[in-house]
C-alpha cells in the first residue's frame, strides 16, 4: 500500500511538474518571397494522354446520346469564336474550329432534346487544351425552356454562390480530354442548361461538346 501511495504521489508530482512547464506558442517560419525573373512558360502536366478512355457509363439498354445534332441556344447570341452548333456536333477535340467561345461572366448554353426524356448522365467538355478549371459550373434540367419552373440542378460547383443559384457542393475540377461525367439520376426533362463563369486562365467560357445520355420517356 505504501509503495502504491508513493508511486501515486510520484505520478501526481510528475503531472504537476508537466503542468508547470512554460508553454510557448509554436513559431512558424515565414520566409519572404525571393525576387524572381520573368516566369518560365509551364508545360502541360496534368492532362491525360489522348488515348485514355473516358469513364464507363453504366446505363440500361436503349440509352443513347440524345443531344447529338440537337439545337443549342446560348446567353451569348453572337459568339466571337465558333458557334453553338459545335456543342452537339460529336467533335470532342480541343483544336481550333472545335469549340465555341462565349463572352465574359456567367453564361449559359441550352440543349433542346426535342421531347422529355429519362436522363442518366450529362457528359461535358469545356476547353481542355490547357490545365484549367471552369468556374461556377452548374448543370440544370427542366421541361420549361425558360428555366423558371421545374428546374432541377444536377451539378453545381459554385461554392460561393456567385451565380445566385445557391452554393454548390460539387467539386471544382480540372478539364481533361475525357470530359466530366455528371449523373442525371433518371430526371425526366426536355431541356439541359449548362452555366459557367470564366475559368482559371481567362474570363471567357468555352464549350467543345455536351452529350446527354438518356432514353425516351417510358
Amino acid at each position: 500500500m505504501k509503495t502504491f501511495s508513493f508511486l501515486f504521489c510520484l505520478g501526481l508530482s510528475a503531472i504537476a511538474l508537466r503542468a508547470d512547464e512554460a508553454l510557448t506558442p509554436l513559431k512558424l517560419d515565414y520566409p519572404p518571397p525571393q525576387l524572381t525573373g520573368t516566369p518560365v512558360p509551364a508545360k502541360l502536366k496534368n492532362l491525360e494522354a489522348p488515348n485514355v478512355k473516358p469513364p464507363l457509363i453504366m446505363v440500361p439498354a436503349g440509352v443513347t446520346n440524345l443531344a447529338k445534332g440537337k439545337p443549342v441556344t446560348a446567353s451569348d447570341t453572337a459568339p466571337v469564336i465558333g458557334d453553338v452548333t459545335l456543342i452537339t456536333d460529336g467533335d470532342k477535340s480541343s483544336d481550333e474550329g472545335s469549340f465555341v467561345e462565349l463572352d465574359r461572366g456567367l453564361q449559359w448554353v441550352q440543349i433542346d432534346l426535342g421531347a422529355p426524356a429519362e436522363l442518366y448522365a450529362v457528359a461535358l467538355w469545356h476547353y481542355h487544351g490547357q490545365a484549367r478549371a471552369y468556374l461556377s459550373v452548374i448543370v440544370q434540367v427542366s421541361n420549361d425552356p425558360a428555366f423558371k419552373t421545374d428546374v432541377r440542378t444536377i451539378f453545381n460547383n459554385d461554392d460561393d454562390n456567385k451565380s445566385g443559384f445557391g452554393a454548390g457542393r460539387d467539386p471544382t475540377y480540372l478539364e481533361k480530354n475525357t470530359g466530366r461525367l455528371i449523373p442525371a439520376g433518371k430526371a425526366v426533362a426536355r431541356y439541359v442548361r449548362l452555366y459557367s463563369a470564366g475559368n482559371t486562365s481567362n474570363e471567357l467560357n468555352h464549350y467543345i461538346e455536351v452529350e446527354v445520355y438518356g432514353r425516351a420517356k417510358p
Binding site: 512558360p41 509551364a42 502536366k45 490547357q130 490545365a131 484549367r132 478549371a133 461554392d159 482559371t200 486562365s201
Partner: peptide, 13 residues
C-alpha cells in the same frame, strides 16, 4: 482533397 484551384498563369494553378 477539397482543395480549390485558382488560376495564376497559363497552365499554372
Amino acid at each position: 482533397p477539397g482543395a480549390q484551384p485558382f488560376g495564376l498563369r497559363p497552365n499554372v494553378l
